[in-house]
Design a binder for these strands. Structure first.
Lengths: 198, 198
DNA sequence: GTCTATAGCTGGATAGAC
DNA sequence: GTCTATCCAGCTATAGAC
């Protein structure tokens, strides 16, 4: 791995742990046993380094989600695919939601602005329409379509965000936590499908 | 409202918006048209000021939740009460989850440690047992009880955390968002009860 | 109690040797 | 490319006048 790569990985770790404001260039350098002057040599400034990571994280996640939401599957299959994709993607990068929320809270407008410049922004309109149609045809329970969508997203993402607190409240240790999360996809999918069945 | 109170309220606003690391004592002072020396006069240090707010936020939320989880109601009623209480509590302080997550991510252990010193920590063991019993008696669908609990929490809390992103993805404006959130309690309760019905 | 002024430190950024 | 040394802005915190 090149020095440039190594810096990026270490920076990702620190930014995710502490957020942009809390992260120190020194911490990143220490993480690598390097000097912070090197970070500036490769990435010019803290802000620039952060942006590189920011977009990398999103380019890993958003295109996948966009693809699942816009495929041409029947609703139930699409829900299953969405949950599987989302939970898998986050489970293999469990720090991502926290990272996103961290920066989202600092300056929501700037954050959303950055995102929109990528055109990988998931387009949920079509999915919502599909839900509405199934409801009109009485194939599934009636819900407010947006709440239904929020329920899906919430159950996929929140456990990863709130993990430390959930573990504290429940007393579940790390090993046990991983075992439990391994079956989350199936549990959530089944939960949703049961909730919409007539 | 006393100066001390005013400082606390302004500080809460800033800490929530920017997190501990991102908040500036100057921002808090400016918010009030005061001088930052005053903040130190009343609260000694940034850290002390933060702690006061931290515990105030939790003392507003946790005891309520603890109460709902440990009441002696049948499961379905308890679920309804839990969702109503949680969503109401957060809706009237929509910044709270973000605030919590912010600080949770900085140093999870210290965070949980602080919390445990209060004895208002919700005890979910009894609730989980109740869920298990209903499942064994085949009164409700079979789920992993912890996933079921996570689903409840997730749907209550996440929309408030991710609001800016959800609005961006969906294109929903502020007025419309408020309308939608006004019915969330009912939507979530119905969703859960439908998911567990046999 | 409230203000101005300033001390003292932290952390991002750069210069310059190697 | 990598390191050491150092600059300088921005921040917390305090001293001291009123």
């Amino acid at each position: 791995m090149s020095t440039e790569e190594k810096i990026k990985e270490a920076a990702k770790k620190i930014f995710i742990k502490r957020g942009y404001a809390g992260a120190r260039m020194n911490d990143i350098a220490d993480e690598l046993g390097m000097n912070k002057a090197l970070l500036h040599y490769y990435y010019r400034s803290k802000e620039k380094l952060f942006e590189v990571i920011f977009f990398e994280v999103f380019d890993m996640l958003l295109p996948k989600l966009k693809a699942t939401v816009t495929t041409d599957l029947p609703l139930r299959k699409k829900i299953e695919l969405f949950v599987n994709t989302y939970v898998d993607a986050i489970a293999s990068n469990p720090y991502v939601p926290m990272f996103i929320l961290h920066e989202l809270s600092q300056d929501p407008d700037r954050f959303v602005e950055k995102l929109k410049r990528r055109n990988s922004f998931p387009e949920i309109g079509q999915f919502i329409l599909q839900v509405i149609q199934e409801m009109e045809e009485k194939n599934i329970q009636q819900y407010h379509p947006f709440h239904f969508f929020m329920n899906m997203i919430s159950m996929c993402a929140f456990p990863f965000v709130a993990r430390p607190m959930l573990q504290a409240v429940s007393g579940i240790g790390d090993e046990h936590w991983n075992e439990i999360m391994a079956i989350r996809k199936e549990e959530v999918t089944r939960f949703i499908l049961n909730a919409i069945r007539i």
